[in-house]
Design a protein around this nucleic acid. Structure first.
Lengths: 164, 164
DNA sequence: CGGTTTTTGTCTACTGGGAAACAAGACACT
DNA sequence: AGTGTCTTGTTTCCCAGTAGACAAAAACCG
């Protein structure tokens, strides 16, 4: 596992694929970033016309599955900061997609519910959201794709039936 | 491959892992985001004390491997916008790590070189940068880790010897 | 009860990064 | 030569997301 500092080249590269990456090709963070940029680009190619952002739809989706969830809990699960969740939720509220409710037993908290409009929005776009990347021709075979999913889920601790 | 709209639950979740994600667990974009957040957190836990950001070091590293590369080409390869690359490079220049040079044959372009300080910086931090996540105890076995790398590389088009 | 600590959401200020417009140079084509 | 078109880096403006301080409410604890 010797990781050499490759010696510098002499001629400056002229084409993108001539730019050597060296050990960066084996950096998990770098690979994840490239993959995410690619997914992002494809997402907007396919679904850009709808006013639909991946993060926003994810929130609505989880809200649909967990009516009455507290705002902070949602942020925690989706790995966004509470401050940012506040912005998103207030925006949703202004657009009439989400209702905020303060429970009596804890008047600090805010419980969230989809409005009928929010529910309709999720219903109308869920199919496109969840299948757009599957319908895409990929460099991966179906088996490889499934394998990638399994590995990522395990890496982030979303195993088949394990909470944490 | 029926993807059902799971019916709503009745009781609001009280704990993070009670928040159902449904089909989101099978969304590539979502998984990549979770993974990247995790890598990011670990990175700063390990290397935060050094003034070292993943993106910035990547630039210096690639510069080390490709002296004289044009600025735009670098941006293209690392999938960042040219505008952003401009900011980073000017910052590096101000910190004395990178030298900008305008070639005579094309006076629009900017060719980049590491200064001796920049070279030293890369030399001093490369080891830590490239091995920090490997030394981390992971939920993945070594074989799974290797498999994940291979799949990600193939997905983003960084195959063993294929340019594009 | 009263005082301290913790939780929950919000606010303000800041940063990383993108979009779009721009200037200067190179190129192409008469 | 001239005149458009393309490329390269830069500038300006904007937005998503974060950090940190904050207020209100709850929980804890004497």
């Amino acid at each position: 596992m010797t990781r050499t500092l490759d010696p510098e080249r002499d001629s400056a590269p002229r084409d993108e694929r001539d730019v050597a990456l060296g050990a960066l090709s084996d950096s998990l963070g770098f690979l994840l970033r490239l993959a995410q940029v690619q997914v992002f680009d494809r997402f907007f190619e396919d679904l850009g016309q709808i006013g639909l952002r991946p993060g926003e739809f994810s929130v609505l989706w989880v809200l649909h599955l967990n009516p009455g969830v507290r705002q902070g809990l949602l942020a925690q699960r989706l790995r966004v900061k509470r401050a940012h969740m506040t912005k998103m939720i207030r925006d949703f509220e202004a657009r009439g997609l989400v209702e905020r409710r303060t429970p009596e037993h804890d008047r600090r908290a805010v419980e969230l519910l989809l409005t009928p409009e929010g529910t309709a929005f999720v219903r109308d776009h869920a199919e496109a959201f969840f299948t757009h990347d599957i319908r895409r021709p990929s460099t991966l075979t179906e088996a490889e794709r499934a394998q990638l999913f399994t590995l990522l889920q395990k890496y982030v601790g979303l195993g088949p039936r394990e909470g944490r």
